[in-house]
Amino acid sequence: MNNLYGKTVFITGATKGIGRSCALAYAEKGSNLILTARSGDLLDSLKEELIRKYGVKVYTLVIDVQNSADVENKVNSLPESFKNIDILINNAGLALGLDKAFLATPTDIDAVIDTNVKGMLYITSSIVPLMLKNNSGHIVNLGSIAGDAAYAGGAIYCASKAAVKSFSDGLRIDLVDTNLRVTNIKPGLVETEFSKVRFKGDIEKANNTYKGINALTPDDVANVVIYATGLPENVQLTEIAMTPNHQADGRTVHRNI
């Protein structure tokens, strides 16, 4: 049974990587989509592709999740037909640099915390009240195994993903007397533009992140998101950690080099 057909799914960071794969996977299931990102051109291109391939309804919002006023205004601007949101995918996130924490610039610190933590909070605070009107919904927060244990050079990013875990747990407690569900999905190494962003366009450094290991793909993660949100409503997967084979945790990786 396809429990996702006709559902309305809100995805942040929807134009690239895991977000894009989630958009395609939900569209294939017949879900309608609200897609957000900072690039209007990429959103328009993805919208056209999804409608052409799957015939689903797609609404796009150019949003900077770091800006609370922008988030609130854009969510409030949704047409009534798109305000019955069934699933929220908090996917927008990034890392910058791989230096010791005390060497990070304030600009990089703000970008990571404002996107990974505050952006998630702003979006959730805008969407959950809409879900509560129907006493139904599923919030998926894209965390990371980096939130379970820090690794060298990743203190700030790891702290942000630890916050995702704690927030997911706390939100689940806050919603325990409702029909809303909360799932924290925690991937390990996923080959996306994540490392390209982290190393600010240094392709060699980015490629070395995945050297010698068959990393997860964005589609791998999207398949798990689809599984978690497609289960019967009496089932709540609270947390899912996933890694590629040969990665044991955030710090232990065997590479065939």
Rank of each mutant, 00 (worst) to 15 (best):
K133I: 11
Y122L: 06
D114M: 08
L132N: 11
N135R: 01
N134D: 07
K118Q: 08
H138P: 11
I109M: 07
G137V: 00
T124D: 07
I123K: 00
N116G: 04
L121Q: 07
T107Q: 12
V140Q: 08
S125L: 06
N135Y: 08
S126D: 01
V117C: 13
G137L: 00
K133F: 11
V140H: 07
T124L: 01
A111S: 14
K118V: 03
K133Q: 15
I109G: 01
M120I: 10
D108P: 04
V140S: 08
H138V: 09
V128Y: 05
D114N: 13
L130Q: 10
I113M: 15
L130P: 02
D108C: 08
S125T: 08
D114I: 02
V128G: 04
N135F: 09
I109K: 10
V117I: 15
I109R: 10
T115N: 03
S125D: 06
L142V: 15
S136T: 13
V128T: 12
T115Q: 12
G137T: 05
M120R: 04
A111T: 13
I109H: 01
I123N: 01
L121P: 02
L121F: 14
M131I: 00
K118T: 10
V117W: 05
M120A: 13
I109T: 14
S125E: 13
G137R: 04
G119T: 09
K133S: 11
Y122Q: 07
V140D: 14
S126V: 04
I113Q: 08
